[in-house]
């Protein structure tokens, strides 16, 4: 049998991950929907991976790569820090 194309593998991962996301996010309590947005925002900055590769490539790509590293870093540090700040406020009675 011939090997499966990597692109198809990626598609499989993508579709399965959407299902994981669907079930995990429905279990998030509505009270934490704002922290959910800020934390998903922080983790979507994992796009920094592409920015690092572009910076490593050198030349014109490195300029765009560097800018993307800066932008994604704002989000990573800002996103996780502000989520932490919000979550620390949620307290029970007494």
């Amino acid at each position: 049998m011939e090997a499966i194309d990597p692109g198809i593998f990626n598609l499989i991962i993508f579709v399965l991950a959407i299902f994981v996301g669907y079930y995990v996010v429905w279990s998030v309590t509505p009270a934490l929907h704002t922290p959910l947005m800020s934390v998903t925002n922080a983790i979507s900055s994992v796009i920094i991976v592409g920015a690092l590769i572009a910076t490593g490539a050198g030349g014109a790509a490195a300029v765009f790569g560097f800018l993307a590293v800066v932008l994604a870093s704002v989000n990573i540090f800002g996103g996780f820090a502000v989520t932490e700040r919000m979550l620390a406020m949620f307290k029970k009675r007494g």
Partner: peptide, 9 residues
């Protein structure tokens, strides 16, 4: 990983 994270978000 980018694909999984992107799908989650």
């Amino acid at each position: 990983m980018l694909i999984v994270t992107g799908a989650l978000v």
